[in-house]
Amino acid sequence: MRSTDSAVHDRTLTPHPRALPGEKVDFGRPMLRMFGFRIDMRVVTSAGIITLLALACGFAGLMMGKFSLTPAEVFQGLFGAADKRIVNTVVGEWRAPRIIAGIVLGAGLGVSGAVFQSLTRNPLGSPDIIGFSTGAYTGGIVTIIVFGTSFVSTAAGAIIGGLLTAVIVYLLTWKGGVQGFRLIIVGIALTAMLNAFNTWLIMRADLDLAMAAATWGAGTLNGMGWSTITPAAIATVVLGLACGLFARDLGTLELGDDTGKALGVRNELVRAVLIVIAVALVAVVTAAAGPIAFVALAAPQIGRRIARAQGTSLLTSAAVGALLLVAADLVAQHAFGDIQLPVGVITVVIGGIYLIWLLIQEARKAS
């Protein structure tokens, strides 16, 4: 059924090419046409449910802590209308920035991971595996040692470091084009060298600066305030929307360069622009909270499985990334009594388990 409205439901009627006689034929998925885009309704529904779960975890984070609050007090504190000033301070100044950081920065990591996994056509193609997160961390360490712990200088250093790493990896990978597997191998090698260089930098720095760099390098939302999260959130949203503008070309490139050329996509230009945007996303997150590992690796694949999408979805990747980071931060804060761990410790544990499972799955496919 079609109409001339700006938003109409559409359903693809092409049977699955591998359908056998007697099998149930898949007549496609419910689609929504809006502003010239085809939107998969299952993807939208899945992303909406995951986002609600992330918000629920965030609301729980606003309530939990040594100074526990009721849901009513949380709502009052969010609007600065609580009778007790301490409630307004705890909710509005201490906990809310942390929750916003977890949701927005987690979404940014999810989008960045989705871009790289689509470009490489490989579930291992995430910025922390390829080395762009490590490069951003290197740039941040250098600026901390040279200019101090200012957020502006650290952010600039992280962005420059991430982009320089991307350029090096891109040049070393280039051979008549960029192949995903070669990009991953070169990125892993460069990550190992950068990790060694980062350790040397920290060991050579003054004790105070070394401690600041090491704490920041663990990946943490502790001490997150509005002065830090506001510019980071704005930058993350803008860069995420910029990735969304290339979503159609990204999906086409996932089908292969030949298909992209046949459909009029300028492959290398689009790929280069998307790499720059995705690296900038990682760098902004790294500047605000340090290098948080494995969220960008796991979120796109989890979102893809939940939505049962044919390709990697930026929308579900962002939602799952937000949920993973907020949930991991809740565990880091409250699962170990009075000890508050950096959220990066929790994501490394979860991500390590997921990476082992992913490698086993890939080995089974190859055998």
Rank of each mutant, 00 (worst) to 15 (best):
G110N: 09
I86T: 02
R42V: 07
G58I: 05
L78A: 08
L124Q: 00
P71I: 05
L62G: 07
P71K: 08
V90P: 14
A72M: 10
G80P: 08
R42M: 07
V44W: 13
I100F: 09
G92C: 11
F75N: 12
L55M: 00
S68K: 15
P71Q: 10
L109G: 04
S126E: 03
L62N: 05
F79N: 06
M64N: 15
V87I: 03
V115T: 02
A47S: 11
S68E: 15
T120L: 01
A47G: 11
R95D: 11
V90M: 12
G113I: 02
S112A: 03
G61E: 04
L124N: 00
G58E: 08
W94N: 15
M41C: 10
G108A: 02
G108S: 02
T120K: 01
A56T: 09
L53K: 04
V74M: 09
Q117I: 00
A60M: 12
T89L: 04
A96T: 07
W94T: 15
N122L: 00
L69Y: 14
A101C: 14
V74Q: 08
R98Y: 07
N88S: 05
T70C: 14
N88W: 04
T70D: 15
G58H: 08
A81H: 08
G61N: 04
T51Y: 02
V74Y: 07
V115Q: 01
R42F: 09
K84I: 03
G110C: 07
L78K: 06
T45V: 07
R42I: 07
V87F: 04
T51Q: 05
L69T: 15
L52E: 12
